[in-house]
Design a protein around this nucleic acid. Structure first.
Lengths: 154, 154
DNA sequence: GGAGATGCATAAAGACTTAATATAAATGCT
DNA sequence: AGCATTTATATTAAGTCTTTATGCATCTCC
């Protein structure tokens, strides 16, 4: 199947990619602004993957180490994360989500999902059905996206 | 059809919304950082809708008027936009995309689309087919998203 | 005509980021 | 074992981006 993939399919990925790009870039403008996107993304990463080093988080989120160091300090002061030392390496700080942090991630995700759901509810039934059928593909894309940046779950 | 929509469909919009939320929030971490997201979004808005007032752009992009005023000045200095007065109202500055600005939007969009396409190319054929079938729905969602913020094209 | 509203520029302050730097700990080579 | 090199992280300074506050010009409406 993969061998005989025609060029038309490669055109399809560009067209689909275009639709997803438009959707994503516009959706990001609606995200809450109570904290920076990097902060929110970091919390979501911790929620997904569990505790991480500061340097790992910096790489995953695409910022410098000092930025992540400061970000973690601010979020620690806000009670959203806590620091733990790593017994196997005294240099290392492991960043862990607190219950308040996990709660924040859930609420933020819920609000974001609801916003999408509101739009989807305005679609005709056949379009909703098509999206439902495409759900595994969308989830697969999201998973590929994460794995590329986060690597396997530790 | 709409009359008899069962509750299961409303659960579907939440599930689909969840997948789209995960995808969008992770994709945003990969966007180029040569300018702020607000700047890039503003250029894209101008590309889509044509010239706009500074106050309109501020509302559309969810920032304050002074932020947009400064942003426009910086982008004007970079040659990405130009200002035009409005003959019918001397207070008004219309912000217009330059050719360089339009070019930048295209290149940035192209890069974003390519990144998605790269992921999509790693999906099995049946998932790609499902996404292709869902394309009208995705485009419809993107359109709804824009209209909610931008109103009709002027 | 004048009060009130609107559009936008400017300044100050705060948040978020990068680059530079310093210290401690770990690793690897001889 | 000793030491050079690398790695992890905190801190500082500077630049960018945003909000709040303010001021001036223009428009609208009574």
């Amino acid at each position: 199947m993969r061998m005989g993939r025609p060029d038309a399919a490669s055109g399809a990925s560009t067209t689909i990619g275009s639709a997803l790009y438009e959707l994503a870039t516009r959706a990001v403008r609606r995200l809450p602004r109570d904290m920076s996107l990097t902060s929110a993304a970091t919390l979501a990463t911790l929620d997904r993957t569990g505790p991480r080093r500061i340097t790992e988080l910096a790489v995953i989120e695409g910022v410098t180490q000092p930025a992540m160091s400061v970000l973690v300090r601010v979020m620690e002061e806000s009670g959203l994360v806590e620091r733990r030392s790593d017994t196997s390496d005294k240099r290392v700080t492991l960043v862990c989500l607190t219950e308040a942090g996990a709660s924040y991630v859930r609420e933020r995700r819920q609000a974001g999902v609801q916003a999408y759901a509101g739009l989807i509810d305005r679609l005709p039934g056949d379009e909703i059905e098509a999206l439902t059928a495409a759900l595994p593909a969308l989830l697969h894309l999201a998973a590929l996206e994460s794995q590329d940046r986060e690597g396997p779950k530790p």
